[in-house]
């Protein structure tokens, strides 16, 4: 691989092992609020990706100035200022995009994943690593948002990436697909409870894959595994779970 070891670890942590949603169980509030459709998930993911990268970089640059006793108010101040700045600048200079994404930008302030990364990573690491961590965490979050949005959208309305052309421009109209024609609709999945239910399925899926990987790792070249062995031999792959938000 072309990346140094620590960068590769940051990447796998951000996208899979310590994913904001799957690994840290953070950011559930914005996650469930906007993932009614895949397009909304994508919009929120892009906005968060930009802000978390910028906030990680900013906090890493100033980390030596920030005493640990007052770090939380300073992080909150920096993140809130950054979000407001992006909000104002986008409104003025990228107004068309703002009309679609504006709703999501303001929601990012409530995203405790940013504070989490500032506290757990950016405040202890050099700028380059913090920047990379922001990008990877952002991409990991974006992927979950799109996956959850897509799953909910397909099950609730039978379409995928509806109105993507409003977000990304006319050239992305090909993304808009009707997966199930003449679908009657399943309202529950579009509402918040549907978000919780679908998220649970996604987390189960992620853990099953982790178990399979761990099993294959310990039984290199092993055959298909009996169910009972999975439970006994491989501990839950996620060691630290913190419920916050």
């Amino acid at each position: 691989m072309f990346l140094p070891e620590n960068y590769r670890k940051i990447a796998t942590d951000g996208i899979w092992n310590n994913n904001i949603v799957f690994g840290q169980n953070l950011a559930l509030c914005p996650l469930l609020a906007v993932t009614g459709t895949a397009t909304n998930g994508l919009g929120m993911g892009l906005a968060t990706l930009v802000v978390i990268t910028a906030s990680n970089a900013l906090i890493s640059i100033t980390r030596n100035l920030i005493p640990s006793q007052i770090r939380i108010p300073i992080f909150v101040l920096l993140i809130a200022a950054l979000v407001t700045l992006v909000d104002i600048l986008m409104n003025a200079w990228a107004h068309e995009l703002y009309k679609v994404l504006g709703l999501f930008i303001a929601l990012i302030v409530t995203n405790c994943a940013l504070l989490g990364r500032a506290e757990a990573f950016a405040s202890k690491q050099p700028v380059k690593e913090a920047l990379w961590d922001g990008i990877m965490m952002g991409i990991g979050f974006l992927l979950v948002l799109v996956a959850l949005g897509a799953a909910r959208e397909i099950s609730s309305t039978g379409t995928l990436f509806a109105n993507a052309s409003l977000l990304l421009g006319e050239s992305f109209r090909f993304l808009e697909v009707t997966v199930i024609p003449n679908y009657q609709g399943f309202l529950l999945m579009a509402l918040p409870p549907g978000g919780f239910i679908m998220l649970a399925f996604l987390i189960v899926g992620k853990r099953l894959i982790d178990q399979k990987l761990a099993y294959n790792h310990t039984h290199a070249g092993g055959k298909a595994m009996p169910e009972a062995i999975i439970d006994k031999e491989t501990p839950a792959p996620i060691s630290t779970i913190s419920i916050a938000d």
């Binding site: 920030i66 920096l78 200022a81 700045l85 600048l89």
Partner: peptide, 21 residues
């Protein structure tokens, strides 16, 4: 001083951005 400094910096930055946009 640091907390006040960060707050001052943030408010100046936001104020200037707001006025200019």
């Amino acid at each position: 001083g640091i907390l006040a400094g960060f707050a001052l910096l943030a408010s100046v930055l936001l104020g200037v951005t707001n006025c200019s946009t």
